[in-house]
């Protein structure tokens, strides 16, 4: 057992966990942040994607102890002032989900790729970047549409702000 502390969705958290505890289990079981899902549990499907210091990572493939001292954002941390994040809103408006199991990972992957590519994000890039996120319902078309719509809105907002 070891004491770990990190910042999750802007909140400082401390806990005693076994060293072998995976980050995803720490988030779901200790913090009851069950938005982050375990799909394959073998680093393939991306349902467990969260942001570690602003970068998308698979929380099923790292120990909670590895994340100690870091800043973690989960899907629960995207809303601000009671408003859905533009990517969440786009997934709802463009039917970017059916069963919804992969959606938290898709949304965290999408916010990461929009942050990295900005206005240069095009359809081919979105499809390539979704390499690590598996959806068994939608066939991906509406997910791609949702991400492109959110990217356009977010880049438009940034331009307006400038």
């Amino acid at each position: 057992m070891a004491g770990i502390s990190m910042r999750v969705n802007g909140r400082e958290v401390d806990a005693d966990v076994e060293d072998r505890t995976l980050l995803v289990d720490f988030l779901r079981n200790n913090l009851v942040l069950t938005g982050t899902h375990v799909g394959c549990d073998t680093s393939q499907c991306g349902a467990c994607v969260v942001h570690l210091d602003g970068k998308a990572v698979k929380s099923c493939t790292m120990l909670a102890a590895q994340a100690a001292g870091s800043d973690i954002t989960t899907v629960e941390g995207l809303m601000s002032d009671g408003e859905l994040h533009p990517v969440q809103r786009a997934f709802r408006e463009h039917h970017g989900l059916q069963c919804g199991f992969c959606t938290p990972g898709m949304i965290m992957a999408a916010t990461d790729m929009i942050a990295r590519h900005g206005a240069a994000l095009d359809e081919a890039t979105v499809r390539t970047e979704l390499e690590g996120n598996i959806c068994r319902c939608t066939g991906y078309h509406n997910i791609v549409r949702s991400i492109l719509a959110a990217a356009a809105e977010m880049n438009g907002t940034q331009q307006a702000a400038e």
Partner: peptide, 9 residues
């Protein structure tokens, strides 16, 4: 290599 999430770690 891998996918974006794997490449970050």
């Amino acid at each position: 290599i891998g996918d974006p999430h794997v490449r970050h770690m």
